[in-house]
Design a protein around this nucleic acid. Structure first.
Length: 524
DNA sequence: TTCCGACAGTGGGGTCGCAAT
DNA sequence: ATTGCGACCCCACTATCGGAA
C-alpha cells in the first residue's frame, strides 16, 4: 500500500468532524490494506503499519528524529512512489543508529526519505514524527474502525487491544482471520506481557467522587485508596522472571532492581500487579515527585550513582490482574482486593472501605497530613477496565490557588490558531517587578480565549511573532497542585499543573500575591 | 429531546541520555 | 564541560460527537 493512500485517508478524516465518518474512512482504508500484498506476512505487516500511521504514530518508539530535525526538508518528489513498508523500513533504520556520527547518518536517511515523498506526503510524515497529525482520530477511533472493517463488536477489539497492549497485531489478526471473533478471543491476559493500565477520572472533592460512584438512593460501600505521587508501575512475575513496566508500557526492569527484589519475595510465583513506585525518605515521608522521577529515569545504576543517591524506590500495589494461575481482570474489585492482600502484603496501598463520605473525607485529610497526593475512590463492583478512563475510579486531590499577573502571552496553534493562548504567570516582587513562575493554557473556555486575545492586544508592549509581551496589569486566579524546584525560572520555583480559574477584574496588579507568599507555600 | 460518557486537542514542568559543539 | 534535542515521567481542562436516558 502506498503512503499516499494513507495520507489521502488522513485528509478525509481531517475534513469531517463526524466520528462516524472518520471511522468509516479509516475502515475503508483498512479493508484495502488487508488485500494486495504478496504474502500473508507482508499483509500483516502492512496492516500494522497502516494502523499506526492512521492513528498518528510511527511503529518505532524512538527514532531520534524530532521537530527540530525537520526544519529543513529537501524538495518534494512529484509522484507518489513510497509504500508504507518503505517508510517503516526507513524509520527502523534511523531508530537503529547510535554512536558518534549517528546524527549525521540519521539526518542523511531523513533527507533520503523526505526527498522521495511528495509535498502532501512530507507534511504527513512530519506530522507522524512530531506526533502532531491533528486529524481528530487517535487510537480509540482506529480501534472502532478495525471493528467496523472486520465486522465485529468494538468491545471485542478493545478488549483484545487491552490484553495485547498494542493495536497493530490485534488489527491484523481481526482483518486476516476467517473467523475474526475467534481470532480476537485468543488475545487473553498473558503473564509477562504488559496490559494497558486502567485510568481514573477526577473529581473536585470526596463528596463529588461519592456522587459519581455511589447509588443516589442508598449508601454504597466504596474503596478509598491513598493516592501516591510517584510513577505508575505494572509488575509481571513468572517464577524468577520479573518485568516492570510504566504506564505507557515502557520496560524499566533494569532501572528498578529494588522493585524486582520485592516482587521476587512475594508468596505467589505467577503475578500481574498494578501499583505506584516512589522514593520514601528516612522519616517515612514521600520525597518530592522530582526525586522519584530522577531515580526512575536513570538507566544505569552505576556504583557511584548508587552511593550518591541512596535513593530507593518502594512499590505500593493497589490491584492484581493475575495470581497463581487465576485471571482476575473480570473479577470485581472486591475480589481482586482480597487476593491482593494475600499475595502483595505488606507492599500494598493503604485503603479504607466505607459507605460514609465523612469517614472518607477524614481518610483523605489523613493522607494529606502524611504527605501523600490525595485519594482514589473506587467502585467495589467494577472489573479492571484496562486502557480506558473508565467510570470505576475517581481521583481526588487538594487544590491551591494564587492570584498572579499575566506577563506575556503566546500565540495558539491548531484549534487555537488566531487566539492568544498560553499565558506567562508572575508573582509580585515587593521590591518592584514580577517573578515568572510558569505558564498555562489550561482551563480556558473559547469565550475566555476570545476575551483575552483582545485584552492582551490592548496591553501589548511588544510582539516578536510568537510571544506577545504585555503591561503587567491583568490579574488571573490560578489553581495548581503544588510547587516544585525550577532551574528555568528566576525565582527557583515553578507551579505544577497550573490552570486558569478566572480573570480577576476586581484586583489590580498591586494586590496580586507576592513571591514571598509563594515561597512560604513552597517551604523552600 | 436532553444528558452525559468518551475522545481528541492543547499544551505545562522536570528529568535523563546522547551527540554535537 | 556545556548545549540542544528527543523521549517520557507526571498531568488539567474544554469542546465535541453520538449513544443513552
Amino acid at each position: 500500500m502506498l503512503l499516499a493512500e494513507v495520507a489521502a485517508t488522513s485528509d478525509a478524516v481531517s475534513a469531517t468532524r463526524s466520528r462516524l465518518a472518520k471511522r468509516a474512512a479509516i475502515a475503508d482504508l483498512l479493508r484495502r490494506a488487508a488485500t494486495g500484498e504478496p504474502t500473508e506476512t507482508d499483509q500483516a505487516t502492512t496492516i500494522e503499519i497502516v494502523v499506526a500511521y492512521i492513528a498518528g504514530a510511527l511503529r518505532q518508539r524512538r527514532t531520534g528524529l524530532g521537530w527540530a530535525s525537520l526544519r529543513d526538508l529537501p524538495p518534494p518528489a512529484t509522484e507518489p512512489t513510497l509504500t508504507v513498508r518503505d517508510v517503516d523500513a526507513a524509520f527502523a533504520e534511523m531508530a537503529a543508529l547510535e554512536g558518534p556520527g549517528s546524527a549525521q547518518a540519521r539526518s542523511a536517511a531523513a533527507t533520503g526519505l523526505f526527498g522521495a515523498a511528495t509535498e502532501r506526503e512530507q507534511a504527513f510524515l512530519r506530522g507522524l514524527v512530531a506526533g502532531e497529525l491533528r486529524q481528530g482520530a487517535l487510537d480509540s477511533v482506529v480501534v472502532d474502525a478495525v471493528a467496523e472493517a472486520a465486522g465485529v463488536p468494538a468491545d471485542a477489539v478493545r478488549r483484545a487491544v487491552m490484553m495485547r497492549g498494542a493495536t497493530g497485531p490485534v488489527a491484523s489478526a481481526a482483518l486476516l482471520a476467517d473467523d475474526p471473533l475467534a481470532a480476537l478471543a485468543e488475545f487473553t491476559l498473558e503473564v509477562g506481557r504488559p496490559v494497558r493500565p486502567m485510568l481514573a477520572q477526577s473529581a473536585p472533592d470526596i463528596g463529588a467522587a461519592f456522587e459519581k460512584l455511589g447509588s443516589p438512593d442508598a449508601p454504597t460501600e466504596l474503596c478509598v485508596d491513598v493516592k501516591l505521587d510517584g510513577i505508575r508501575i505494572q509488575a509481571h512475575r513468572l517464577g524468577d522472571d520479573i518485568r516492570v513496566v510504566t504506564r505507557s508500557l515502557d520496560d524499566i526492569t533494569e532501572r528498578v532492581p529494588e522493585i524486582v527484589e520485592v516482587v521476587r519475595a512475594l508468596p505467589s510465583d505467577r503475578l500481574v500487579l498494578d501499583g505506584e513506585a516512589l522514593a520514601i525518605g528516612q522519616d517515612g515521608v514521600p520525597r518530592p515527585f522530582q526525586e522519584t522521577a530522577a531515580r526512575s529515569a536513570t538507566r544505569e545504576a552505576t556504583p557511584e550513582a548508587e552511593l550518591a543517591s541512596q535513593l530507593q524506590l518502594s512499590p505500593f500495589f493497589f490491584d492484581v490482574l493475575h495470581a497463581g494461575g487465576r485471571d482476575l481482570v473480570d473479577a470485581p474489585l472486591r475480589e481482586r482486593l482480597a487476593v491482593l492482600d494475600e499475595v502483595a502484603a505488606p507492599h500494598t496501598v493503604r485503603r479504607l472501605v466505607t459507605s460514609d463520605p465523612d469517614a472518607a473525607a477524614e481518610f483523605f485529610a489523613g493522607a494529606l497530613r502524611e504527605g501523600q497526593e490525595g485519594v482514589v475512590v473506587k467502585s467495589l463492583d467494577t472489573p479492571y477496565a484496562a486502557g480506558r478512563r473508565g467510570a470505576g475510579w475517581v481521583k481526588v486531590k487538594p487544590r491551591q490557588t494564587l492570584d498572579l499577573v499575566v506577563l506575556a502571552v503566546e500565540r495558539g496553534s491548531g484549534r487555537r490558531q488566531g487566539w492568544l493562548s498560553n499565558i506567562h504567570l508572575g508573582a509580585r516582587d515587593p521590591d518592584g517587578g514580577f517573578v515568572m513562575l510558569g505558564k498555562t493554557f489550561k482551563g480556558m473556555t473559547d469565550e475566555m480565549l476570545e476575551w483575552q486575545t483582545e485584552r492582551f492586544r490592548e496591553l501589548q508592549v511588544e510582539d516578536n511573532g510568537w510571544v506577545v509581551t504585555v503591561r503587567p496589569e491583568q490579574v488571573v486566579e490560578i489553581a495548581f497542585d503544588g510547587l516544585q524546584r525550577s532551574t528555568r525560572y528566576p525565582g527557583g520555583l515553578a507551579l505544577r499543573f497550573a490552570r486558569v480559574l478566572r480573570y480577576r477584574d476586581d484586583k489590580s496588579a498591586a494586590e496580586a500575591d507576592t513571591i514571598e507568599t509563594v515561597r512560604t507555600l513552597a517551604g523552600f
